[in-house]
Design a protein around this nucleic acid. Structure first.
Lengths: 123, 123
DNA sequence: TAGACTATATACATGATGCACATAGATGTG
DNA sequence: CACATCTATGTGCATCATGTATATAGTCTA
């Protein structure tokens, strides 16, 4: 019983479909970024270091580039291993705008459900 | 360009992971229900008739029963084809409670992102 | 009795994500 | 110099939730 609850509340259920993608767009809207470096910045959006899957991060960035939401280039002469620097495109900015609208709808739907539940359980 | 936008905003992107499941738990928390009949009630939670996938609905209910979140029985002597009536279990109620907590976290994360975006775009 | 409607369900495909592992250059240490 | 460690990027396979298409079967109505 306790085991199942633990499993259920282990943080994996907190994931939201394509939320990472939107966060990345917003971060890159501010400034250039590269995969490994974005990990820290993602903590602000509720992604813990353990939570966040590095493979998913890189895969997502590559996918976003295929869809022309971001573009990338190799950093010249920085310290350490070379970095692929990402930059948001105009299409990416439009896309972000649409995502925010979608998230507003999601938020409203969640709010409605929470309210209906709290009414039932006696506020 | 317009085609891509249409594709992006066609409602499919409004889906939220396992949100249907939580809505079903809440509806069955109120009263007994059966698959086909629940479709109408789901409109309250932002599922349009077109949107909502009947296969997904039935599949989800069966899955929930396997996990002992709901139990079911065949209706006796009602009108029309026989209905499988679903009922929430105690485990289902606990589960719903946990889901609501998760949704509160999701909501907070979405809010934070929306706020950061609107600050950037000039409120 | 033929067709439409109600109702439930399965088979196959897709898309997002997680886990494990591969690669490779940079840096530090004995 | 040799070796381990850290930074950084990526791929292959598995899983999970969902969508599409289709199957089945009883009921109601013209």
């Amino acid at each position: 019983m306790v085991k199942d609850q633990d499993l259920f509340c282990n943080g994996k259920s907190h994931k939201m479909e394509r939320f990472l993608e939107v966060c990345l767009l917003l971060l890159l809207y501010d400034e250039l970024g590269y995969g490994y470096g974005l990990i820290e910045q993602l903590e602000d959006f509720g992604f813990s270091q353990e939570d966040l899957n590095v493979s998913t991060l890189y895969r997502t960035l590559r996918k976003m580039e295929k869809e022309n939401l971001v573009s990338s280039f190799w950093e010249e002469g920085g310290p350490g291993p070379r970095r692929r620097i990402y930059e948001i495109t105009d299409i990416g900015k439009e896309n972000l705008d649409q995502w925010v609208r979608i998230l507003q709808i999601r938020k409203a739907r969640i709010e409605k459900l929470i309210n209906r539940y709290s009414v039932k359980t006696g506020e």
